[in-house]
Amino acid sequence: MRTREKAALAVAGLAVAAAGGTVLAGTSGAVGPSPAPNVQAAEASCVTDGAGMCTVQHALGTVPAAVVVSANTPGQFNAYMLNTVQGSYTATTFQVRAMFNQTTPKAGGAIWFSFAAYGGAPVTITPTPTKSSPTPTKPPTPTTAPTTVAPPTTTSELPGTTPPGGGSGLGG
């Protein structure tokens, strides 16, 4: 905040205080990661080569961990897709490629775009394993052959009984 802005804020605070209001004034620092990340955001333009590519200068002073680009097309019939070129990042430059479609580069044409280059080491995100339910198992198949039981034999007499007539077998 500049000195003039601070003075205006102080005068406004005094006026509110004189009117019987509560003044909450002061300056605060930026809230965010510490140390602040190294970021450069800008607008750029260039003329592409035969493959639809051009080299862009940046001022990070280090190889960017990521670069985000967004095409700014001035006319309704001048649309193109814009991407960064993998492996092209250096401490001072990166490359972009403009394409009309997946197979046709915007060769030898002017392109306009915005970019944000982020310095520092790239963040690697490792997926956390998800818990899976156990796979149901089938009961084991028996390995022994089932035993067979012989059918019972039928007799007319039950064991331990005497034949009718109660006889002793002696004629009588």
Rank of each mutant, 00 (worst) to 15 (best):
T104K: 08
I111L: 12
A79V: 08
Y89P: 10
F115D: 11
A65L: 13
G61A: 04
F94Y: 02
G119K: 02
T92A: 13
Y80D: 02
G87S: 06
P105T: 08
N83Q: 15
A121R: 13
M99E: 00
G87M: 04
P74M: 08
M81Q: 10
H58V: 12
G50A: 14
A117C: 02
V63N: 07
L82R: 00
F115W: 13
N83F: 10
K106Q: 12
A121V: 14
Q57F: 12
T104N: 14
Y80M: 00
V56G: 09
V96E: 02
T84Q: 06
V85A: 04
S88C: 02
Q57A: 15
C54H: 05
P105E: 07
F115L: 14
T92S: 15
A79M: 07
A107K: 02
A66W: 11
N72E: 12
S114Y: 09
A79G: 07
A91I: 11
T55R: 09
T103Q: 12
T90A: 06
A98W: 01
N72F: 11
C54A: 06
M99P: 00
F77P: 08
G109W: 13
S114C: 13
L60I: 05
G120W: 05
V56A: 07
Q86Y: 13
G120H: 06
P105F: 11
A71S: 04
M53A: 14
A110L: 10
N72V: 13
M99L: 01
A65C: 08
Q102H: 09
V69Q: 06
F94L: 01
Q102R: 14
Q57K: 15
Y80H: 00
G61T: 03
G120L: 04
A107V: 03
A65H: 14
Y89E: 14
F115V: 10
A71C: 03
G61K: 04
A110E: 15
T84M: 09
T103F: 12
P74R: 10
Q95Y: 01
P64N: 08
A107R: 02
A91Q: 11
M53F: 12
G109L: 15
A107Q: 02
H58W: 09
A98T: 03
Y89T: 09
T92R: 13
G87N: 07
T103C: 10
A51Y: 04
Q95P: 01
Y80V: 01
G75R: 13
L60K: 05
T90I: 02
A121D: 11
Q57C: 11
T103A: 10
A116P: 08
G50E: 10
A71F: 01
N72H: 14
M99G: 00
G108I: 05
T93G: 08
G50D: 15
S88E: 02
G50Q: 10
A51E: 06
G61W: 03
Q86H: 13
I111Q: 11
P64C: 07
G50C: 08
G108F: 06
N101T: 14
A107C: 02
S114M: 11
T90F: 07
